[in-house]
Design a protein around this nucleic acid. Structure first.
Length: 209
DNA sequence: ACATTAATTGTGT
DNA sequence: ACACAATTAATGT
């Protein structure tokens, strides 16, 4: 856990690593814990060390939608923009499972961008990647029907959990795709008949990913 | 081991 | 979308 370069595949300069060790706050979150609430003041940039985080967006009526997962080596790029302007969080972040994070004070983001080449590319690449991920989320919403969205939802969850066995109820899935439980049940049933998944109570085994 | 209950899932309208 | 049926897991006796 000490050497970030080993845990993540970032080739941070040793000096940068020293700074991170000095000022970064290590925090651990249990499954289901909320890490960032809507409108939270963003004074720290979260960097994922282990586990996985899900990022939600909410409309004004309180409907939530899962945007994407953050995995080890990722950082929350909406935080990057929030941090730089030091505004409030537009998203909600929740631990998918036990997750370790390092929080970096926001003032240092831009400071380090100037000082450290590796930090610069880290921030930019992360930002770019997240941007593309967001585009693909939009594509899904706009062009894919619910059965397809459900399947990609499951596949993404498999990747984030590094396990094809997902323990979630139909109701939870319905919430995250913001639809009703009944339609999810029907879709899952069909996927099972197509041998793409296997259903048991509160558990879904994804066979096709 | 059995019964009771709550939660989850299935299905017809 | 709603209502209800069926199934499963958890818990107490």
């Amino acid at each position: 856990m000490n050497n970030l370069n080993d845990v993540l595949q970032l080739n941070f300069e040793t000096e940068l690593l020293n700074e991170i060790n000095k000022v970064g706050l290590h925090r651990s979150f249990d499954e289901g814990q909320v890490i960032i609430h809507y409108n939270d003041e963003m004074s720290y940039l979260p960097l994922v060390v282990s586990g996985a985080i899900r990022v939600f967006r909410q409309d004004n009526e309180g409907h939530e939608l899962l945007l994407y997962y953050l995995e080890p080596g990722d950082t929350c790029s909406t935080s990057i923009s929030c941090c730089l302007k030091s505004s409030k969080s537009l998203i909600r972040a929740e631990a998918e499972k036990k997750t370790e994070l390092i929080f970096i004070p926001v003032q240092l983001i831009s400071e380090w961008i100037v000082k450290y080449e590796r930090w610069r590319t880290f921030i930019f690449e992360n930002y770019e990647f997240r941007f593309e991920e967001l585009l693909s989320s939009i594509d899904q919403l706009a062009f894919m029907d619910l059965p397809k969205r459900t399947l990609t939802y499951l596949r993404n969850k498999v990747i984030a959990n590094r396990s094809p066995n997902l323990k979630s109820t139909h109701q939870e899935i319905a919430n995250e795709l913001n639809t009703s439980r009944v339609v999810i049940s029907r879709i899952l049933k069909k996927l099972e008949q197509e041998n793409k998944i296997k259903l048991t109570r509160s558990n879904i085994e994804v066979l096709d990913f």
